[in-house]
């Protein structure tokens, strides 16, 4: 049994978007990190390879580069050819997607500038009535 707190992963950030009424381009959300925690997760290269087609890679790179913390591994601007045989790449992607956790912070809609807070690892994506 694990007692580690669950927090927002960058994999999750990659799947979230702003849905403020009228917003055409609410993706990716601008991430501002308050508290960041790295939790070791068992390396599963197959999972990373299979997740790659589901990811918006440029959004992940943009977000990773914007965080500017030493815990963030360097990743290439594009997914390398034959990622399944590139362990260095897979390990970096693994750390970025599954091990970096955001406990406190916020995400901002790039168009409307609506801010979605992250408290105790839970993003609050709720809108006010006039925004939805």
């Amino acid at each position: 049994r694990s007692c580690r707190p669950r927090m927002m992963r960058l994999l999750t950030h990659n799947m979230l978007t702003s849905h403020v009424k009228g917003v055409k381009n609410g993706y990716p959300l601008i991430l501002r990190v308050g508290e960041l925690v790295v939790q070791e997760v068992e390396f599963n290269p197959d999972f990373i390879v299979r997740m790659l087609p589901r990811l918006d890679w440029p959004a992940l790179v943009q977000t990773a580069n914007s965080i500017g913390r030493p815990e963030i591994p360097a990743i290439p601007a594009t997914v390398p050819e034959q990622p399944e045989s590139n362990e260095e790449f897979l390990r970096a992607a693994h750390t970025l997607l599954l091990e970096v956790h955001i406990k406190e912070g916020e995400m901002e809609c790039p168009e409307s500038h609506k801010v979605f807070p992250i408290r105790n690892g839970i993003p609050n994506m709720l809108l006010e009535e006039e925004e939805s």
């Binding site: 999750t12 799947m15 979230l16 993003p123």
Partner: peptide, 14 residues
């Protein structure tokens, strides 16, 4: 491991 977020239905999901 479950990632949770607070939203109306699936509205925050890409």
């Amino acid at each position: 491991a479950v990632q949770t977020f607070n939203c109306d239905l699936a509205s925050g999901l890409l």
